[in-house]
Amino acid sequence: MTRPRIATASLAGCFGCHMSFLDIDERLFELVRHVDFDRTPLTDIKAIGPCDVGLIEGGCANAENVEVLRAFRQQCKALVALGACAINGGIPAMRNQFSLQEILAESYLDGMGLDQGQIPNDPEIPLLLDKVYPIHEVVQVDHFLPGCPPSGDAIWTFLQELLSGQAIRLPYTQIHYD
């Protein structure tokens, strides 16, 4: 039997979920005995290949997020929304209370201390979406693991159950939205 491949990515997030993933600590050794890692900041592989599990941290705030997310969806058998931002936009989605115009003007034109500001328009910079979107509004998501971040224990429980093909049930103290 081939070893399951896992990929991870952080979209509009803070990498906190990835840090929490590292918080499974010595259990990482056990994990790497059973799985291979594809694209993830841990391997520094830049392009994703066919995978069994994709863990997505962060919501979609710009066109690049959408592109990465779609690539993950195409390549992954199971896609997981990992953490609050992937699930409902999280903290970045607090910008949805304002229009993009208001936000960019405040940040780059009218904000305190700005002189002759201009809205960045370098084509290198991904275009912003009008809002930050939860990833399940862009692609189909198979599993949700809440938390800001989900605790290392919750991630460990989740991965164990997912990889063993069981129904995923987290103990009470491992379900939290913050």
Binding site: A81, I87, N88, G89, A93, N96, Q97, K131, Y133, P134, H136, E137, V141, H143, F144, L145, P146, R169, Y172, I175, H176
Partner: peptide, 16 residues
Amino acid sequence: YYCEMLAPELPHFFPR
């Protein structure tokens, strides 16, 4: 939590 809801799997309204 009691109802084991993991995520609001519906489109969000993001009302202002």
